[in-house]
Design a protein around this nucleic acid. Structure first.
Length: 595
RNA sequence: CGGGGCGUAGCGCAGCCUGGUAGCGCACUACACUGGGGGUGUAGUGGUCGCAGGUUCAAAUCCUGCCGUCCCGACCA
């Protein structure tokens, strides 16, 4: 790009680009969506010309898309400011030393993009900013009197995702609002946490999203108490769980499965080994024995590093119809490192049999039994002997010592942990996450203040994230039809579109449009004027609908002869005829004004 | 990282099996007609067929390796 070296002598308004005229804008809509787009928001964002891919997980925001992005950003900024948080801006590139201090340089894994500068010093691209902010605050704040304090930024993050997907929904480079609060006591942290909870709710409401706050696992960020904010959508990557009667809502990672009441019935059958050639899965076994999955036992072998860094295998036992919850299992086993399924090779070496024939009898590994599986009796399971299974297996009589715990994912229909109704499962897109970190980072990085008694104490911390770019995609997932996007008014790139018919032939159409454009613009609306002289009606309407502009005014000679214009909301299927003199007031009554 | 698919014009695709001329639709340019829901016609622009080797007189096509990319599984705003 060449910068103009000469001063431009005089710029009159006539020469300024009128950026809301289609003829001066860049509208790059497409009929076909690129073959690699899978979810609706990705397809529509590409078709509407909002974003363009640069590489996997890296997107450019085109002028149209950026307008929406900025709207979301403004809502987030306004509400954060209103909450009392202070905006600042930290660097994307962060020194390795800080990450070494918190211990995360080693923990974070390949998601952290590590780079070296010309002096061979190590840095990373910031995936989050706990280290940087804690470093700043430990130097800047030294008294409890300066607390609580909450700082935020809206900034580009980089996470080298193993699998970027769904367009702007899961990218490697993305925009996040991240906030970090500091406190001298737990009550103060809880107070700010509650304020952030309320602030987030306001933000997502203002953005026109249907969302739910749910209990969440804290993951690699660490900390204790945590909520996620999910936009409800079929394409969501997370399963979220609701109580049918009460307020309980949680991510499935976190949702507790209540232990069944009572103990396992006494054994009735003898333990019998039977040949089960070709039976490897629960489905195979059920068909072979003609039993239900809930009468069988699913045996999983997982592999994890213990505290000394040694790889250890564990046997996890679930009812045949249940699925392992890895977060719970990791917690139950008291492991700090992530667990993974043992490979076929590991299993064969340790157990001398294949994954399809494992069972709890004489397994020789630490055993955790899910509480639903622990009340089974006379069940079918693998015999730890290739090609054989047991029937009539029973706990204690046929197994060694084991631990009983909740290690499964809840399923729809389970009793709600709050005792009110049953659980339902829906899909959600995580757009926000708030955590109470406690003193995890302040202890690691020695961030202290003096308290009332002049004693040093570690600050408590909270952190609060919102995926700004992800909100744009989530809004589309929730608001679209076969013709394209239907923007919530508060984040629409333009509120109103003016579509002329045969403007190049009709002075009255042209004049009416120009006047209307000026009036609406001066009234504070963002108006997209489809002013290209020879554009065809069909194409313009298709574009306006694809782009998702909420209010559309069509101006044609036919209407003008009767003194009317045609108005249609993006969600309507019929036109309304509005008198020419009333149209500005009509828009004022019906359209959202951005400023 | 494991499993699978795909790389041919800006986008969507055909051609590959059976080696020999690179093709279609959309978009784009020009002109004409048309003009109330992606119109019609004529004439055009645009591709080292992902990259590198190999086989062959000859490779988009066959072989090998690499790269990119997407989807499905384990992570996260």
């Amino acid at each position: 790009m060449i910068l103009h070296r000469k001063m431009i002598p005089l710029v009159t308004s006539k020469h300024l680009r009128e950026t809301m005229r289609a003829s001066q804008y860049l509208i790059t809509t497409k009929k076909d969506s690129p073959a690699d787009a899978e979810v609706i928001s990705h397809k529509l964002m590409l078709r509407a010309g909002m974003i363009r891919k640069v590489a996997s997980g890296l997107y450019s925001w085109m002028p149209l898309g950026l307008r929406v992005f900025r709207k979301v950003e403004s809502i987030v900024r306004e509400e954060m400011d209103r909450s009392g948080a202070l905006e600042m801006l930290m660097p994307v590139v962060q020194p390795a030393d800080l990450w070494a201090e918190s211990g995360r340089w080693g923990q974070f894994g390949p998601e952290l993009l590590r780079i070296k500068d010309r002096h061979d010093r190590e840095f990373c691209l910031g995936p989050t900013h706990e280290e940087v902010i804690t470093d700043i605050i430990r130097n800047e704040i030294s008294s409890y009197k300066q607390l609580p304090a909450n700082f935020y930024q809206i900034q580009t993050k980089f996470r080298d995702e193993r699998r970027p997907r769904f367009g702007v929904m899961r990218t490697r480079e993305f925009c996040m609002k991240d906030a970090y609060s500091f406190h001298s006591n737990a009550a103060s942290l809880q107070e700010t946490y509650d304020i952030m909870h309320a602030t987030y709710s306001t933000i997502f409401e203002r953005a026109g999203l249907i969302f739910r706050a749910v209990l969440a696992d804290t993951g690699s960020i660490g900390g204790s108490h945590s909520h996620e904010f999910h936009v409800l959508a079929e394409s969501g990557e997370d399963a979220i769980v609701f109580s049918s009667e009460g307020d309980y809502a949680a991510n499935i990672e976190k949702a507790a499965a209540l232990a069944p009441e009572g103990a396992a019935p006494s054994p009735q059958l003898e333990l019998t080994e039977i040949a089960t050639p070709g039976v490897h899965t629960i489905a195979d076994l059920c068909q072979f024995l003609d039993v239900e999955p809930a009468e069988t036992l699913k045996s999983l072998i997982i592999s994890a590093e213990d505290d000394s860094g040694k790889t250890q295998l564990y046997g996890l036992m679930l009812r045949g119809d249940h699925e392992l919850n890895e977060v719970k299992a990791q917690e139950v086993l008291g492991l700090t490192s992530k667990i993974s399924f043992a490979t076929e090779k590991q299993i064969k070496e340790a157990l001398k049999c294949s994954p399809g024939s494992i069972g709890p009898t004489n397994l020789g590994l630490p055993l955790v039994v899910d509480s639903s599986a622990a009340v089974l009796s006379d069940f079918a399971c693998g015999a730890n002997h290739d090609g054989y299974h047991f029937t009539g297996a029973n706990w204690q009589r046929d197994t060694g010592d084991y631990m009983v715990a909740d290690i499964r994912n809840v399923v729809a229909g389970d009793a709600s942990p709050d005792g009110r109704g049953i659980l339902e499962i829906k899909r959600g897109i995580e757009v926000g996450h708030i955590f109470q970190l406690g003193t995890k980072y302040s202890e690691a990085m020695n961030a202290t203040v003096l308290d009332e008694n002049g004693k040093q104490q570690f600050m408590s911390m909270g952190c609060y994230g919102i995926g700004v770019s992800r909100i744009v995609a989530a809004a589309i997932e929730q608001n679209n039809d076969e013709n394209g996007i239907i923007w919530p008014e508060s984040i629409a790139p333009f509120q109103v579109a003016i579509v002329p018919i045969n403007m190049h032939k009709s002075d009255s159409v042209k004049q009416t449009c120009e006047t209307l454009y000026t009036q609406l613009t001066e009234s504070g609306y963002e108006v997209l004027f489809m002013d290209e002289a020879k554009a065809r009606l069909g194409g313009m309407l298709a574009d306006v609908e694809l782009i998702g502009i909420p209010h559309r005014i069509v101006v044609g000679d036919r209407g003008l002869e009767a003194g009317t214009l045609e108005y249609r909301h993006r969600r309507d299927s019929e036109n309304q005829h509005i008198a020419l003199n009333d149209i500005v007031n009509f828009i004022k009554e019906h359209a959202f004004k951005n400023s």
